[in-house]
Design a binder for these strands. Structure first.
Length: 941
RNA sequence: GCCCGAGUGGCGGAAUGGCAGACGCGACGGACUCAAAAUCCGUUGUCCGAAAGGGCGUGUGGGUUCGAGUCCCACCUCGGGCACCA
C-alpha cells in the first residue's frame, strides 16, 4: 500500500498534510459545483449566455471518453485528463471560453462482460460504474461542465446515434459530386434515366423489388452477404480493425474465422481518398497519420484482364510495366473462378489444397516460415501483351481480401513470385537489365525491384525496350491496356468496408425493420429512440472458441414480443420484424463531441449555430493553409489510431456532406498522451503477484518468501500493478497527485509510476503553503518587506517561462520553474507581498484547490478560475549586467560579468582581459574571437 | 523485412547549435527529537587532488562547425505500428 505520512498531534495544526489537503479539496469541489464555476456558455439554446461569450475566443478541449469498467480508475487513466484540465484552466485564465467536459462510452463488450460476470443487468452495473467514475474524477478536481457529460447508453443520446445511422442508411456516395447525398437523389437519377440502370434495362421495366435491391446496394449503410470475422468465443462478428495480426479478437483473444454472413456494413471505402487527403489539414503527429495512411493502404496501379476458358480473370498490379514478365497467374484458393477453371485431372489436387487452406487458421498461415505452397489448376490464361498462354495456379500467398484475389506473377520482378517460380520450376524471364546482373536469371538470388532499362518488352503496338523510368513505362502500358480493352489504370485500398453489426445485447438497437420480403426499412423519426428492450436474458450466446461452424445468435432475437411489430410506414399498417443486431462499441464515440455542445436538444442532434461556434472552420490553419474546423485539442491514447479515429472521421464526413455539420474533420489537433507504466512481478509459476505486496531485499524481489521477477508494463488489473487515485488522494491530496503525474515527464511520453517519488510534489506544495500561510494559525503570513530586484526578475522570468510551457503542454517544466521560484522564496524566509498573488495565479491551473484556498486567504471572495493569468513585464526580463562564459578553443575557462548593453568589441576586450582566460592563452595571440551577444565568448588560438 | 519514436547521473527527467545534468526521487552528512518518523539545512556525474584546480563524460564510429546531447552519414540497442497488400 502507499505509505501515508503520519500526522501525529505534534505537527502544526495548519500544516499542509494529506488530511488538510483533502478538507480543502472537498470544500472547493463543493463550491465549484454549487456556483457552476465551470459551466460553459453556448451562443444559442438553453445553455446560452451571450454576455459571458462576448470578447472571448472559443476553445474546445476534449478527452477520449472512458469506458466505465467495474474496477474503477487507476492512476494511469487520468494522465491525459489532468493534462487537459490544466490546459483548460490555463486557457480560461487567458481569456478563452473553454468547452471541457467528460462523458462515458458505456455500451459495448467490457460493460456487458462485467454484467455477465456479476449476473447483474448491464444497465445497473453501467450506472454504478459511471457513478464510481464520476466520483473518482470529481475527486481529482477536473473543471468539467457537468451539464454536458453525456453517456452513450442514455436513450436521449442514442436516439441521435440511431438518427445518424439512418442518415447514413439513407445516403449514397455520388462519385461525380465526390460526396454523400440523400438516397432520394439516386432514385431520381435512375427514374429520370439520367443514370442508366446497372444491368442496362430501363428503370421502368424493373419490378419494385428489383429497384429496391439496386437502391439498397448503393446505400452507405447496407446489408451484405460477404466474408466477415466470426468470433465464436465472443459469440459475435467483429470488424477487421478488431482482429489482431495473428487472427484473434482484440477483446478476449479468441480465434476469429472468415465466414460469409449477412451483416450490416458501412461504406467507409467510399471515403478512402478523402480520409487520406484531409490528413494534411490536421495537426496530428506524423506517426498517427502514417498509421491511418497505412491502414487505408492506397495503391496505384492497373487492373488487367487475362482471357481464360472460364472468362476473363482480372488482376490488380502496381507494376503493369512488368506485364511482359508475367509467366503465370496465381489465384487465392477461395477465388470464385477456381471451380470453373480447374481441369478434371487437377480437380482432386485443387480440392485437397483448398481444403487445407480453409482449415488453416490465420495463425498457422502466419507462423509458417513463409515457405510458398500452391497447386496448378491445369487451366491457362492469355497474357494480353505477349499473347502467350500461361498457367493458372492457386496459392495461399494470394489473399482473397485484397485487390481482386488474383495476381499476375512476375517472377523476375517480385520476390514472392520469384520464390514460387523457383519452387515449382516455372520460367523466370528477365524483362529489365539490372546493373551488375546477367540476363540469365538462373544466376539471380532474388527478384529485381527497381529502375533499370526494359528488355524483351515489346509487341507490335507497345514498346518499352530501352526505357528506364518505371513511371513512364507504367503510363505507356496503362494507355495501351485501355485503348486495347485489356484493362485500365486503377487504385486499390487495403481498407475494407466497416462491419457494423454485432450479435450482442449491450449496444444501440438498429432502427431498422424488415418487411415480409426481407427488405430493410428505416424507422421514421417518430419511432426514435428505439429503446433497447428490457430483458434478463442479456447474455450473448458464445461458443467453443474453436467451433468455427457455430452460428451467431443475437440476444434480441429471443425476444419475440419485441421483434415482431406492426407499423405504418406510409402504406398502411403492416407486420415487420425488427433487426436484432446491435451497433458496435464504436458507434457512440463517432459523434459524442457534437452532443457535448448541445446535450439536451430534443429537436436536433446539435443546434447548427452552436455547432458552428464550437466546431466551425477557423480563419487559418497551420502554415496559413485551410483550417477544416473541429475540436481544438483532442487528447487520448495512441491505441485508437485506426479504430475510433478512422470511424469518427468517416461519420463526421458523412454528416458534413449532408450539411449537418460545418467542419470537414472532427478533431483538428490530436495529442497522444503516454502511458503510465508500473513494475509487475511474476512468481516462479509465471503468475503475476500483487505488486504492492512485493518487497525488495538482498538485491532481489520477493513476494513473501517467494523470489519474483520484475518487468515493466502498462498499469492495469491484468498485471496486478494498479495504483488507484483514491489511495494517493487519501495520503497526499489530489493536488499532489495532479502535480506528480504532470511532473513525471513530458505528457506524450510513457513513464514508470513510482509511488515513493510522489512525496516530492507533496513537499513542494507544503513549502508553497508555508511560504504564504502560518502553519500554526492558518492565517496569511507574508513577509513585511517588498521583493528585491532579484526576486522580481525571477518572478517575471518564471511568468514568461510558465506561459510558454503551458501553451506547449510542457507541464513538467512549468512545474520545475514554479518550484525554483518557490525555493527562492523559501531561502528568503517567506513570500514578499507583491509576489504572492502572481505565484498563486500561476499555480492555479496545476494545483487548483490549493490555489483557490490561498487566493481566498489573500482576500479574494471569488474563484481564481477566471482571474487573468499573470503577464511578464518585459523590462524585468532583461538584466543590467550579463555573465558571459568565456571559452578557449571550445572549453569554458572563465567567466566575465559586463554591462548588458556593452558592444561586441567591449565584450571581447573584457574576455581577453580576464586573468584566468589570459592564463590559458599564455600570451598566445588569438586567431579568432567569437562573441555571441548575450550568450558567450569563444577564443580560438 | 518495412514505417515511426527513443537512447543523457543510482532512478524519473531538463537543456532556441552556446556554461550538460534544471526540477524531483534516492543516497550521504547535519539540525530538531529520549528515539524514530515527519519537517528543515547542506552535499551529491565520474576520476585525480587536502584544496585550488584539472582530466573524462549525453548508445558506438565518423563528419560539419569557433562551438554538437542537439545538425549530417553509418551502425548498435530498446519501444511502438504494419507485415505474403500483388
Amino acid at each position: 500500500m502507499t505509505s501515508a505520512p503520519t500526522t501525529p498531534s505534534d505537527v502544526p495544526k495548519f500544516r499542509y498534510t494529506g488530511a488538510l489537503a483533502q478538507e480543502i479539496e472537498r470544500r472547493w469541489q463543493d463550491r465549484w459545483e454549487a456556483d457552476g464555476t465551470f459551466e460553459t456558455p453556448n451562443p444559442a439554446g438553453p445553455l446560452a449566455d451571450s454576455a459571458k461569450i462576448a470578447g472571448r475566443r472559443k476553445l474546445f478541449v476534449l478527452d477520449m471518453f472512458p469506458y466505465p469498467s467495474g474496477t474503477g480508475l487507476h492512476v494511469g487513466h487520468p494522465l491525459g485528463f489532468i493534462g487537459t484540465d490544466i490546459y483548460s484552466r490555463y486557457k480560461r485564465m487567458t481569456g478563452y471560453n473553454v468547452m471541457y467536459t467528460m462523458g462515458f462510452d458505456a455500451f459495448g463488450l467490457p460493460a456487458e462482460q462485467y454484467a455477465v460476470q456479476t449476473g447483474l443487468h448491464p444497465a445497473i452495473t453501467t450506472n454504478a460504474n459511471v457513478a464510481n467514475y464520476r466520483r473518482q474524477l470529481r475527486r481529482l478536481g477536473l473543471s468539467h461542465d457537468a451539464r454536458r457529460g453525456v453517456s452513450t447508453t442514455d436513450p436521449a443520446y442514442y436516439r441521435w446515434t440511431q438518427w445518424i445511422f439512418l442518415q447514413i442508411f439513407n445516403s449514397w456516395y455520388d462519385t461525380d459530386a465526390g460526396k454523400a447525398r440523400p438516397i432520394g437523389a439516386l432514385v431520381e437519377q435512375y427514374s429520370s434515366a439520367q443514370r442508366p440502370a446497372d444491368d442496362g434495362r430501363p428503370w421502368t421495366d424493373l419490378s419494385p423489388t428489383e429497384r429496391d435491391a439496386i437502391i439498397d446496394s448503393h446505400r452507405l449503410a447496407y446489408v451484405s452477404d460477404a466474408p466477415v470475422n466470426w468470433c465464436p468465443g465472443l459469440g459475435t462478428v467483429v470488424a477487421n480493425e478488431e482482429v489482431t495480426a495473428d487472427g484473434r479478437s482484440d477483446r478476449g483473444n479468441f480465434p476469429v474465422f472468415k465466414r460469409n454472413m449477412r451483416q450490416w456494413m458501412m461504406r467507409i471505402t467510399a471515403y478512402a481518398d478523402r480520409l487520406i487527403a484531409d490528413l494534411d489539414l490536421l495537426d496530428w503527429t506524423d506517426a498517427i497519420k502514417a498509421m491511418q495512411r497505412n491502414w487505408i493502404g492506397r495503391s496505384e496501379g492497373a487492373t488487367v484482364h487475362f482471357q481464360s476458358s472460364a472468362g476473363p480473370i482480372t488482376v490488380f498490379t502496381t507494376r503493369p510495366d512488368t506485364l511482359f514478365g508475367a509467366t503465370f497467374m496465381v489465384m487465392a484458393p477461395e477465388h470464385p473462378l477456381v471451380d470453373a477453371l480447374t481441369t478434371p485431372e487437377r480437380r482432386q489436387a485443387v480440392a485437397q489444397y483448398r481444403h487445407q487452406a480453409a482449415s488453416k487458421k490465420d495463425i498457422d498461415r502466419q507462423d509458417d516460415t513463409r515457405e510458398k505452397t500452391g497447386v496448378a489448376t491445369g487451366a491457362y490464361a492469355v497474357n494480353p501483351v505477349t499473347g502467350e498462354s500461361i498457367p493458372v495456379w492457386i496459392a495461399d500467398y494470394v489473399l482473397m481480401g485484397y485487390g481482386t484475389g488474383a495476381i499476375m506473377a512476375v517472377p523476375c520482378g517480385d520476390q514472392r513470385d520469384f520464390e514460387f517460380a523457383r519452387l515449382y520450376g516455372l520460367p523466370i524471364p528477365a524483362i529489365q537489365q539490372p546493373p551488375e546482373r546477367s540476363l540469365d536469371t538462373s544466376t539471380w538470388d532474388t527478384a529485381f525491384v527497381g529502375e533499370a532499362p526494359y528488355v524483351n518488352s515489346s509487341n507490335g503496338s507497345l514498346d518499352l525496350d530501352g526505357i528506364t523510368g518505371v513511371a513512364e513505362a507504367i503510363q505507356l502500358t496503362n494507355d495501351w491496356l485501355e485503348s486495347n480493352g485489356h484493362g485500365n489504370a486503377a487504385i486499390t485500398y487495403k481498407l475494407r468496408d466497416w462491419l457494423f453489426s454485432r450479435q450482442r445485447y449491450w449496444g444501440e438497437p438498429f432502427p431498422i425493420v424488415y418487411d415480409l420480403d426481407g427488405h430493410p426499412h428505416g424507422l421514421p423519426d417518430s419511432e426514435l429512440p428505439l429503446v433497447l428492450p428490457e430483458t434478463d436474458s442479456f447474455s450473448p450466446r458464445t461458443f467453443d472458441p474453436d467451433d468455427e461452424f457455430s452460428d451467431p445468435e443475437s440476444p434480441l432475437d429471443r425476444l419475440e414480443w419485441w421483434t415482431n411489430v406492426e407499423l405504418d410506414l406510409g402504406d398502411g399498417p403492416r407486420r415487420y420484424r425488427r433487426d436484432t443486431n446491435v451497433m458496435p462499441q464504436w458507434a457512440g464515440s463517432c459523434w459524442y463531441e457534437l452532443r457535448y455542445l448541445d446535450p439536451t436538444n430534443e429537436q436536433i442532434f446539435v443546434d447548427p449555430a452552436v455547432e458552428l461556434y464550437w466546431m466551425g472552420p477557423q480563419a487559418e490553419g497551420r502554415d496559413g493553409r485551410e483550417h477544416p474546423g473541429g475540436v481544438d485539442l483532442y487528447v487520448g491514447g495512441v491505441e485508437h489510431a485506426v479504430l475510433h479515429l478512422l470511424y469518427a472521421r468517416f461519420w463526421h464526413k458523412v454528416l458534413y456532406d449532408l450539411g449537418h455539420v460545418s467542419s470537414k474533420e472532427p478533431y483538428y489537433r490530436l495529442f497522444n498522451q503516454g502511458y503510465i507504466l508500473a513494475a509487475a512481478y511474476k512468481d516462479e509459476r509465471e503468475i503475476y503477484v500483487e505488486a504492492t505486496e512485493v518487497v525488495e531485499r538482498d538485491g532481489g524481489y520477493f513476494h513473501g518468501d517467494q523470489p519474483v521477477s520484475r518487468e515493466w508494463g502498462k498499469m492495469g488489473k491484468s498485471l496486478k500493478n494498479a495504483v488507484t487515485p483514491d489511495d494517493i488522494c487519501q495520503s497526499y491530496g489530489a493536488d499532489t497527485l495532479r502535480l506528480y503525474e504532470m511532473a513525471m515527464g513530458p505528457l506524450d511520453a510513457s513513464r514508470p509510476w513510482e509511488t515513493r517519488d510522489v512525496v516530492g510534489m507533496y513537499r513542494f506544495l507544503q513549502r508553497l503553503w508555508r511560504n504564504v500561510v502560518d502553519e500554526e494559525t492558518g492565517e496569511l503570513a507574508l513577509l513585511d518587506v517588498e521583493a528585491g530586484t532579484d526576486t522580481k526578475r525571477l518572478l517575471h522570468r518564471t511568468i514568461a517561462g510558465v506561459r510558454d510551457d503551458m501553451e506547449a503542454l510542457r507541464f513538467n517544466t512549468a512545474i520545475a520553474k514554479l518550484i525554483e521560484l518557490n525555493n527562492h522564496l523559501t531561502k528568503l524566509g517567506g513570500c514578499p507581498p507583491g509576489i504572492a498573488e502572481p505565484l498563486v495565479l500561476m499555480v492555479a491551473p496545476l494545483a487548483a484547490h490549493l490555489a483557490e484556498e490561498l487566493w481566498a486567504k489573500l482576500g479574494h471572495d471569488s474563484t481564481i478560475a477566471h482571474e487573468p493569468f499573470p503577464v511578464a513585464d518585459p523590462a524585468l526580463l532583461v538584466a543590467d549586467t550579463v555573465e558571459y562564459p568565456v571559452q578557449v578553443n571550445g572549453k569554458v575557462r572563465g567567466h566575465i560579468t559586463v554591462a548588458a548593453d556593452l558592444d561586441t568589441a567591449g565584450v571581447e576586450a573584457a574576455a581577453l582581459a580576464d586573468a584566468k582566460v589570459a592564463a590559458w592563452l599564455a600570451g598566445a595571440e588569438p586567431k579568432k574571437v567569437i562573441v555571441v551577444p548575450g550568450r558567450m565568448v569563444n577564443i580560438v588560438t
